[in-house]
Amino acid sequence: MPMNVDNVKSQMRKGMLEYCVLLLLGKGEYYTTDIIEQLKEANLIVVEGTLYPLLTRLKKEGVVTYRWCESTQGPPRKYYKLSPEGDEVLKELNKAWNELATTVVHLTAEKVSE
């Protein structure tokens, strides 16, 4: 096996996870299970539990906020959304992503042309 592809992949996913969560919350207010569903679809998380420490940290950093909502069945739910600071962070990240994507596209194109 050439080096540790799995390791690199998980690193990439890990890096993307935070950005993707912010992207999602940038679109509106979601509760955790919604986020999980979306991320699972995108293959960004392997186990659901991963999300909780991340959200807790983002909240602590002031990037996101949440409010409690009673649920008709089951436990109460936390609804997350971006804070104003979170909007700023997202903008920054969007910029960074665009640059990165451009670079990646550029590099991939070069390889193809060879």
Partner: peptide, 10 residues
């Protein structure tokens, strides 16, 4: 689905 503590802990 939810994962073991080690997997969950970022």
């Amino acid at each position: 689905r939810v994962g073991n503590p080690e997997e969950v802990d970022e």
